[in-house]
Amino acid sequence: MKIAIPVVDNSEHTTISSAFGRAPYFLIYDTNTGEKHFVENQVARSSEGGAGVVAGQLIVDSGVKAVLTPQCGANAASVITAAGIKIYKTEGDSVKDAVAQFQAGKLAALKDIHKGFHHRGGI
């Protein structure tokens, strides 16, 4: 099963990004084969609105069945859940721990979808 995790960069020892829609990269990991690769989230570097929608579309197009993230905005969540992808809540910033906990069935579904930090958190 392929899963996606928002991460801060595309290095070997990258950590989980606290932002979802504007996470710089997504780590796509196949739990069956152990294969992984990074997808760049280009909207993270832009100032345009609707980053959650674009990031959500990227996740859907990557063919994953689950997303592991500390938080997720409403627009991204709408896109992801519309595609039947489940969102799980991570604790801490370790990718390795998150994957291990997911595989052990210890991650709960993300329930508190925030309204989104629109306009890049400003007004």
Binding site: V43, G50, V53, G56, N75, S78
Partner: peptide, 18 residues
Amino acid sequence: RFNALAYISGQVLVFTQL
């Protein structure tokens, strides 16, 4: 350019607030 549309599961989703 306002990212108000997404294509999911064979359908276009419209985010009217965007």
